Simulated scan of single mutants.
Amino acid sequence: MKTVLNTIKQQFLYFPLILRVALYETKSKYQMHFLGILWQFINPLLQVGVYWFVFGVGIRNGVPIEGTPFFIWLLVGLIPWFFISPTIVQGSNSIYSKINLVSKMKFPVSILPSITIMSNIFGFLITLLILAVVMIVYGIPVNIYILQLPYYLVCLFMLLYSITIFTSTISALIRDFQLLVQTSMRLLFFMTPILWSVNEFPERYHTIIQLNPFAYIVNGFRDSLLNSTWFYEDWRTTLYFWSLTILILFLGALLHENYKNKFVDYL
């Protein structure tokens, strides 16, 4: 547990450094593009349009889900996923891609996944603002349940860091693991209730679906913005989510601590 606490402590201690490097990476990523940082929003918007047309218009014929227009329902699920998927894929490669640089100086390697998370969080926050505007246009009322949205944001950040500190360590040691992460994220997109509702499945499958921690996040966003459910009402799922997140964080921090001085040997 001491290892986990030290790892978390480093994230707070080096937060100014995380923020500076993340800002630099965000600017440099799109520096040579004519539209620049706008590509962070163009790609998700194009994907949202395709998913809405295929699943909302083509398959569902525009039928609302749980009383909510399908486009809004889909958007609330896709926005966190557009943050989750690239962050995990990029975060799992964060140590390997920079190990040559950080090995030449005294640098807290454990903050590299946090830099990736912070680099992607800027676009995520702006898409949340866009979602708020779209909901106003559609006349979706804001209720008191939106107060729990910060809780789900904390859940999201904790889960992302736990996964990326774990996967980035393994990816630096075993390069095939990075390909496994990419494939897994593509599969998890369809296994997470983003394009479909949990209630469309028989109740006996609900427990299996809830084993996916990303389902907890996506459903939580919908509960905060569209539904009327507090996170503590389903305390079993909440307990499972945090138990799993802490377990992954513990394993990731322990693995990282054991190999952080040996990454160069695996290049």
Rank of each mutant, 00 (worst) to 15 (best):
R20H: 13
S92I: 12
G56R: 08
A215M: 08
I144S: 09
P64F: 02
L225C: 07
Q40P: 09
T207N: 14
G49H: 03
I126V: 14
L149G: 10
Q31C: 04
E233T: 13
V57Y: 06
T169F: 10
I115S: 09
W73H: 04
Y96H: 05
F214T: 01
P202W: 02
P113W: 01
C155S: 14
I79E: 09
P193K: 13
T167M: 04
P150W: 06
A253L: 12
A172Y: 05
L244M: 03
S243L: 06
M32N: 12
P141A: 13
P213N: 04
I130C: 00
T164W: 04
S228E: 13
T116I: 04
K9V: 14
R222N: 03
N199V: 09
F157D: 02
T87H: 12
T237A: 14
M32L: 11
L254F: 15
I8F: 03
P80C: 02
I84F: 04
S197K: 13
L254M: 10
L188W: 12
I163T: 12
P141R: 08
F71R: 01
K98S: 13
M118L: 08
Q40Y: 05
K2S: 13
I217R: 07
L78Q: 09
V109L: 03
R175D: 14
T3K: 14
P44H: 01
L255R: 13
V198F: 00
M32T: 14
L35N: 06
R175I: 10
L187K: 05
Q148E: 10
S228P: 02
L23A: 04
E203G: 12
Y259K: 13
Y151A: 08
L75S: 00
I121D: 01
T167E: 06
A132C: 09
N219D: 15
I140R: 10
Q10C: 06
L156N: 10
V137I: 15
S228A: 02
Y138F: 15
P202Y: 00
N93E: 10
L35S: 03
Y30S: 10
R186V: 11
G220R: 09
T207K: 15
S94Q: 04
L129R: 06
F82S: 00
G62Q: 03
V57R: 15
I72R: 00
F157S: 00
I165D: 02
Q210E: 07
V57I: 11
L46S: 01
L131D: 08
I121T: 11
V89R: 02
L112P: 05
I84R: 02
L249R: 04
F34C: 00
W230C: 07
K106D: 09
E200G: 06
I194G: 02
P16F: 00
A215N: 12
I115V: 12
G62H: 09
Q40V: 03
R186D: 05
Y216W: 10
I174N: 06
L45R: 01
K106W: 07
Y266Q: 15
K29Q: 04
F107M: 01
R175K: 15
Y266N: 11
Q31A: 08
T238D: 06
D265W: 15
L156H: 05
T116V: 07
S184V: 03
L254V: 13
Y259E: 08
I95M: 03
S224R: 13
V21P: 10
L255T: 14
S97E: 11
L23D: 05
K2M: 08
W242K: 00
I126W: 11
S28V: 01
I170S: 03
I208T: 01
L173P: 13
L173M: 15
